[in-house]
Simulated assay, not measured.
Amino acid sequence: MTTFEQSTTRNTLLRTVSPHIFARLSAEMERVALPLRFVLVEDGVAPSHIYFLEDGLASVVATSSDGEAIEVGHIGREGASGMHVMLAVPATPGRTFMQVEGSAIRVPLNVFTEAVVSDRETREFFLRYVHTTILQLAHSALANARYNVQERLARWLLMCHDRLDGDNLAVTHEFLALMLGVRRSGVTDHLHILEGRHAIRATRGNVRVLSRDTLLDIAGGCYGIPEREYEKVLGLPSRVR
């Protein structure tokens, strides 16, 4: 049986919670691989586990009644899947699945729920995280309504860069189209514009960040507020310019 040490976990939430919260969850923790397209939350189905990502990138996707889909949020090593359960909702519309393969520490839903219900500190900590995910969703709506495609693309690439190791982002054109809500055929043109600004280099299935500062300048006001709020409410040092 694997013994989990809080100081060596790569998930920011698990590394940041109080030691007694971590100890309570650790007895039922299991580290698992998350292949591409692995579903963490299925549409309308109560999850069996909460996944605390350590590597990789998951997409939170909203789908309309006629099948139109767009990504509304990311989860990486800063977060966890299935947080609708914190709001006493067992199942939710929409899906969360892996866009970049990785790994996670998972905890059975009943163990997580028992800890949340019985311990105020645990409950308040994860509610603060839920607050940051709602803010991320709100700013995605703001970006879609008020910012152009280049600014939104820069924002999403910065969000991916925050959650993945190194400067190589293993993202496909299909993923970028889903992120932006644009046709896949138009993604290449928008990437070429960012390449012309020397912000990135795009190849098949990969975007390499050459200048984070340039991406920040292009994204402007549509990036930064949710990131600062995450660091503020969870007591982490700010990394956002």
Rank of each mutant, 00 (worst) to 15 (best):
D217G: 10
F175G: 11
R201F: 12
S103H: 00
R152H: 05
P93N: 09
V207G: 12
L14I: 03
D119G: 05
I218L: 05
A33M: 08
R120K: 13
K232W: 04
D43G: 02
T12D: 11
R197F: 13
G181Q: 06
V60A: 14
F175S: 15
H74V: 09
L169K: 02
H173G: 14
R183A: 15
V171E: 00
A27H: 15
H173M: 09
L13K: 02
C160G: 11
M86E: 09
A115F: 02
R239N: 09
R77D: 06
I50L: 09
V45P: 07
I218V: 14
R212W: 04
A219P: 04
S7Q: 12
G56D: 02
C160R: 13
F52D: 05
D43E: 03
F97M: 02
E5D: 13
M1W: 08
V45T: 11
T12H: 10
G221P: 04
L215K: 08
L210F: 07
G181A: 03
R37P: 08
G196Q: 08
A202H: 12
G73V: 03
Y223G: 06
V111I: 12
H74T: 09
A170N: 10
S48Q: 14
I70C: 11
N110G: 10
F97Y: 07
P93Q: 05
P237Q: 00
V171L: 15
L137T: 12
H84P: 04
N148F: 01
V116D: 07
T203D: 12
A145K: 12
L164D: 03
G76Y: 02
Y147E: 03
R241T: 08
E78K: 11
G181P: 10
L216W: 08
V116K: 12
N144K: 13
A202L: 06
A143L: 05
I21D: 01
I218Y: 03
G44Y: 00
Q150R: 13
L178D: 09
A23N: 11
A91D: 08
F112H: 05
G181E: 03
T132F: 08
G224C: 03
T122N: 07
E227C: 05
E229P: 01
V116A: 12
I105Y: 01
D66T: 09
I200R: 10
T92R: 11
R120C: 08
G235D: 00
E195K: 04
C160Y: 15
V240S: 09
L210N: 07
A199N: 05
A138P: 07
S26I: 06
I75H: 00
G205Y: 00
R95S: 12
R241S: 09
R95T: 06
A202C: 06
I21H: 00
G102S: 02
H49V: 02
V60I: 13
P19N: 02
V100D: 01
C160P: 04
L216P: 00
G79Q: 00
S103G: 03
V117M: 12
S118R: 15
T8P: 01
H74L: 15
M179H: 13
M159Q: 15
A115G: 06
F4M: 01
V61M: 04
R152F: 03
L53E: 02
E71F: 04
V117A: 13
F38M: 09
